[in-house]
């Protein structure tokens, strides 16, 4: 078994079964996991900001929820995925230090989760599971054999989505 494919901050990767894709230590960032159950093709994006409107530096689509999702879909289609059989899971968007607001974003974790949901709705992709909000860091792995997502955190151990 090969090592899982790693996704960094403001990064995204797509692949197919039997591979796994991981991203580590999400705080306020959000992991958007897409999986085409019919073709066993999936992707994982580790986004930082809700939309391109929040940054002066917009060249990297993996940085924003609103650009990462279309980008992942294009890449998955190239591998043979069809949008009709793609569903989503979202993880992260915590507030690590209680009550710390990042101006002008406020509760940035919450904003990222909302933006991910809006961007998925725009593409008519169903969210079938989520592990969002709260105050703890999470690491995420998707198994492209079956679309199973494993979320690990210090506080709650392992959560299977």
């Amino acid at each position: 078994m090969d090592d899982p494919i790693k996704v960094g901050i403001a990064d995204l990767k797509v692949s197919a079964a039997p591979n796994k894709i991981v991203t580590n230590a999400l705080g306020s960032c959000v992991a958007i996991v897409l999986y085409d159950v019919a073709h066993r093709i999936g992707g994982l994006a580790h986004i930082m900001l809700p939309t391109t409107a929040f940054s002066k530096i917009r060249s990297n689509p993996a940085k924003f929820a609103d650009t990462a999702i279309p980008e992942m879909l294009i890449m998955m289609k190239r591998l043979g995925a069809t949008k009709a059989t793609v569903s989503a899971k979202i993880i992260g968007g915590a507030q690590m230090f209680a009550n710390v607001l990042v101006e002008p974003l406020g509760n940035i974790g919450l904003r990222n989760v909302q933006a991910a949901k809006e961007a998925l709705a725009k593409e008519s992709i169903n969210i079938i599971a989520e592990d969002t909000g709260g105050d703890c860091g999470k690491s995420v792995e998707i198994d492209l054999n079956n679309g199973g997502v494993t979320v690990r955190s210090i506080k709650y151990g392992i959560n299977k989505l």
Binding site: I9, N24, A25, L26, G27, S28, C29, M48, L49, A94, M96, F97, V100, V102, L105, I108, G109, C136, G137, K138, S139, I154
Partner: peptide
């Protein structure tokens, strides 16, 4: 918590 999770909102900012 994990260091990456603690610093990510600073990075975001």
């Amino acid at each position: 918590d994990m260091l990456g999770a603690l610093v990510d909102f600073i990075i975001i900012n």
